[in-house]
């Protein structure tokens, strides 16, 4: 019974599949040999997939963390009385960040900061601020006026209202924004491998350059699974946050 119920939770078995492929891709060597008899080696071997994943994760975490901090802080700022005048300006800046495709940002930042992970982190950061900011704004502005008024009327300070009332009520919306930004960033980070970032995109571009299809497939499958698992994790967290709130 329990086993059947576990199968109904895709996070568990997709997560397990992802972990297994990360650690034991070489076990599939016979399969790749059979499918691509000409390709040797059939398994990407310049780096372990686990190491590629950890580097990929670090880049996404750095960009996502920074975009979350900046996006949420900006949303909080422009919804305070002192920051209301900056609302339009912040909206426009975030839209500009979103308007530059990450490839363009990479091209522009490489001359400035050189090859490596940094241009990718910067590009993903700029690309991630807008969805996080927009969702955080929607969440904060969705807090009912009556709730705010009651909180103030009972003697909560503005900071207490923010921390105990507004942020918890906006949390599901904020998390939805982070989820979008991070999931997109996982996919987009792969192109960072063209400017020296080490990611799961590295085997993809190596494979394309050396005309080795197995490398491309291995990288692409892992990136896709990484994005799906992350998205499911966020979905579970979001469901947890929303459970207590009215529909």
């Amino acid at each position: 019974m329990r086993g059947v119920r576990l199968l109904a939770r895709p996070l568990l078995w997709i997560g397990a599949l992802f972990a297994a492929l990360l650690s034991d891709m070489p076990a599939l060597r016979p399969l790749f040999h059979w499918a691509f008899p000409a390709a040797r080696p059939a398994i990407y071997d310049r780096d372990s997939f686990a190491a590629l994943f950890l580097s990929h994760l670090a880049i996404v975490a750095a960009a996502g963390g920074a975009a979350s901090a900046v996006g949420i802080a900006l949303a909080v700022f422009v919804t305070r009385p002192c920051g209301r005048d900056f609302r339009a300006l912040v909206d426009r800046l975030a839209a500009v960040g979103q308007a530059f495709p990450p490839v363009v940002v990479l091209a522009l930042t490489v001359p400035a900061v050189g090859f490596g992970a940094e241009p990718t982190v910067i590009a993903l950061f700029l690309y991630g601020v807008l969805p996080i900011l927009a969702n955080a704004l929607a969440g904060l502005e969705g807090v009912p006026q009556a709730v705010r008024e009651a909180a103030a009327g009972m003697g909560l300070s503005p900071f207490q209202i923010l921390r105990q009332v507004e942020l918890p009520l906006a949390a599901p919306a904020i998390l939805a924004g982070v989820r979008t930004a991070v999931t997109v960033a996982i996919g987009t980070a792969t192109i960072g491998s063209t400017v020296g970032a080490v990611t799961l995109g590295t085997p993809i571009f190596d494979g394309l350059a050396a005309n080795k299809l197995p490398f491309v497939i291995e990288g692409a499958v892992l990136v896709a699974l990484f994005a799906i698992v992350t998205d499911l994790l966020f979905a579970a967290l979001e469901a947890r946050l929303r459970r207590r709130l009215p529909a």
């Binding site: 009912p144 006026q145 009556a146 709730v147 008024e149 009651a150 009327g153 105990q164």
Partner: peptide
């Protein structure tokens, strides 16, 4: 203002209960 408000009960038409807190935590606010 906060000290003053904690000494005065305030009830509004739209109630304004905190939707993320159960009844007991709402009552325990002040």
């Amino acid at each position: 203002a906060e000290t003053l408000r904690r000494r005065i009960g305030y009830v509004i038409q739209s109630v304004g209960l905190f939707p993320h807190w159960p009844v007991e935590d709402n009552i325990a606010t002040v």
